[in-house]
Amino acid sequence: MRYRNEDDKCYGVAGMTIGLSIFDASDLYTGVTLDADGLDCIQFTPEFFFSGNPRINAKQSWQCIYSHYQISMGLIIADTVCRKMLLDHGTIDRKSKKALLDAMAEEGKELCQLERDEVEPIFDKYFSHLVKVFSNADIRKAIDEMVALLKEHRSFSRSEINDILHQLSIL
């Protein structure tokens, strides 16, 4: 993910923090920072980077990798949708949505040996849900406030993010 400027990055990071909450993945990160790039703005726990363990059977290992792939997909969609809808006051066109799906399908194939037809329903479900979330006027207002806080402080711990989300009535 590339950001055009600091505002773009702030909305992307805010979108991803909402995504972490929505996808019940708050335990997989320790904080957020504007001083990194792309998904690195989210400071993940070591468990998030699980790539297998010979002591765990193959099915459990794959399920863990698949779960983290789904979270990554949700975060990338949340980042993109939040920036487009809240910062640009627009919608994601078909070409952009297809490019996003193509990237997620390629990642799914590489990480989990998934075919496109296995990725597409998950992608569509997440995409539709996140468009609804970011269409909510109360969420939009709260994200604008969160962006202002991010600009001011540049980074937050997970507990600070949770406090902010509670104060803004997002959680």
Rank of each mutant, 00 (worst) to 15 (best):
L87K: 15
R140H: 04
E118A: 15
E120L: 08
L87A: 03
N136I: 04
K151H: 10
R154Q: 13
L150A: 08
F127V: 09
K97I: 04
G108W: 02
R83Y: 05
H89N: 14
L101Y: 09
I139H: 13
F127R: 05
K125L: 07
H153M: 07
F123A: 05
I143M: 12
F134N: 02
K95P: 00
L130S: 04
D138L: 10
L101T: 14
A103P: 01
K97W: 05
P121G: 08
G108L: 05
R158S: 06
K132M: 07
D124R: 05
V131C: 05
Q113L: 14
S128V: 09
C82K: 10
S96I: 12
F123M: 07
S159Q: 15
Q113K: 13
G90K: 09
A99S: 13
I92L: 14
E118Q: 15
E107N: 01
R116P: 00
M104T: 08
K98L: 09
E160G: 05
F134A: 10
E118D: 09
R83Q: 11
S157E: 09
R116E: 14
E106W: 14
C112F: 08
Q113F: 11
A142T: 03
E115Q: 11
L86H: 04
N162V: 12
I122W: 00
M85E: 09
L100C: 07
R140K: 14
V131T: 14
L149Y: 13
L87E: 06
R94V: 06
A137I: 03
A137H: 06
C112S: 12
S128G: 09
E160H: 05
D124F: 04
L149Q: 09
A148M: 08
G90A: 12
E160T: 12
S157R: 12
A142Y: 01
K98V: 10
K132D: 06
Y126I: 12
M146G: 06
R154P: 01
F156R: 01
D117E: 12
E118V: 01
E145W: 03
D144G: 05
M85G: 01
N136Y: 04
F156C: 00
D144N: 13
K84P: 01
A137Y: 02
P121E: 12
K132C: 08
V147Q: 10
S159H: 14
K151Q: 12
D138M: 07
A148W: 00
E107I: 09
Y126M: 13
L114N: 07
D138P: 00
L111M: 09
D117T: 03
K109H: 10
H153I: 04
I143Y: 00
K141D: 14
C112K: 14
K97E: 12
G90S: 15
V119R: 03
R140L: 11
H153K: 15
L114A: 03
D144R: 03
E106V: 11
S159G: 03
E120Y: 03
E106F: 04
S128L: 10
A142E: 07
Q113H: 15
R83K: 13
E160D: 10
A148D: 09
R83P: 02
K95M: 11
I161Y: 01
R116T: 06
E152I: 05
K97G: 02
I122E: 00
V147N: 08
K97P: 03
K132I: 04
S128P: 01
F156I: 07
M104C: 10
I161E: 01
L111Y: 08
R158E: 07
K84D: 04
R116L: 02
